[in-house]
Design a protein around this nucleic acid. Sequence first.
DNA 1: CGGTAAGCTGACGGCATGACAGGACAAGTG
DNA 2: CACTTGTCCTGTCATGCCGTCAGCTTACCG
Lengths: 215, 215
Amino acid sequence: MTGQVRTVDGRVAGRRGQATRQKLLDCLSEMLSSSPYRDVKVIDVARRAGTSPATFYQYFPDVEGAVLEIAEAMAKEGAGLTELVAGRSWVGKAGRQTAEDLVEGFLTFWRKNDAILRVVDLGAAEGDKRFYKIRMKILNSVNNSLADAIKDLQSRGKVDKEINAAAVAGSLVAMLASVAGHQKGFQSWGVKQSELKPSLTLLVHLGVTGKKPAK
Amino acid sequence: MTGQVRTVDGRVAGRRGQATRQKLLDCLSEMLSSSPYRDVKVIDVARRAGTSPATFYQYFPDVEGAVLEIAEAMAKEGAGLTELVAGRSWVGKAGRQTAEDLVEGFLTFWRKNDAILRVVDLGAAEGDKRFYKIRMKILNSVNNSLADAIKDLQSRGKVDKEINAAAVAGSLVAMLASVAGHQKGFQSWGVKQSELKPSLTLLVHLGVTGKKPAK
DNA sequence: CGGTAAGCTGACGGCATGACAGGACAAGTG
DNA sequence: CACTTGTCCTGTCATGCCGTCAGCTTACCG
């Protein structure tokens, strides 16, 4: 329980304050979508929100702090990605469908939140634990479910026991995240969106089960 | 041939000038390793290089411009990654070795250049074509070779023809790049470095050939 | 209506940016 | 050795953003 929203100087934010705060977050979000992270300035965010820089600093310690806030909200939503994998079958036609749904859901989520996810990715890669934790929170939901699926298949003798479930699951999730983040990039390789999904589906299915998906 | 190195105002740089320029690039590199990209300031780079900000601006239009320079140099080196795949066998024991070498070489390269690669990745994800091109230059060398290998296997009937070679190769390369960039991150999932490589090797081999690698 | 706390902003010192002109320096020339 | 030439570096300056504070306005409550 975080309890109440507070300003930097300790006051509790009322209805109006929370609205302003939210507006700043929204404007920052838009800003991140339209200009490089490095060039996002407090003054621009404030201007766009129709307020002053001083107001921004009343609610957030700095740009990074506000970004963390946005990311946290997104992570909460992203935890729902678990359902794409948890409790689903990896056998036969159903297995193919599971892989397909996972890829589809993942790409959609990533595209929807690409701007903020870019920044989270950078922060995590730079070693910032706070960003790191958020990235984990999102990927973990899928990663753990995938690892469980692999372990389950292992216990039933359908997959080599010497395989490290967590490592394979993590690599697959990293693949999904990376491809999702550079979706546009694939076009330069002459790969269209529509061709990307089947390939990812194939790789995910192969990675989890060791076998090609059923038609 | 770019010909001569030039300053921002058009003069050709002599020996001393090039040394200063290089020193600035080196210091910027160190800076990127030790502090977040967003916080790297021209004045800090200049101070570290024992010179003044004005000197920096004589050789580079801004921080981004200098970063591009460093990235370009790295890309040249990275083009050598082709040799990890080109002309190598994907059959039997040799195939396993190919996958292993590819993973090893890739991870090593990435770790060596992680700071600059982070920035390139961000720039590319943000849609900056210049960064994009550099990222391509590095990944292309591996990607094309991988795609060729898959096509070759397809033509010999060893892999399904309906698979899109470029898409699969691209996804595998993206996976390698992403895992390499978040190597530390896997530790939080309880995955050690030593366990990561076999898993990646497995996935790469599976992706290319559709079969598990031979022991 | 007066008190209190929330909400906002103008203004300010500090620092980074980016441009310029001019000084320092090395190398070649007579 | 003085002089010239072209490279190289820096002092300085206008501009603009950062981050903070005091103080003003607004909303709520008894």
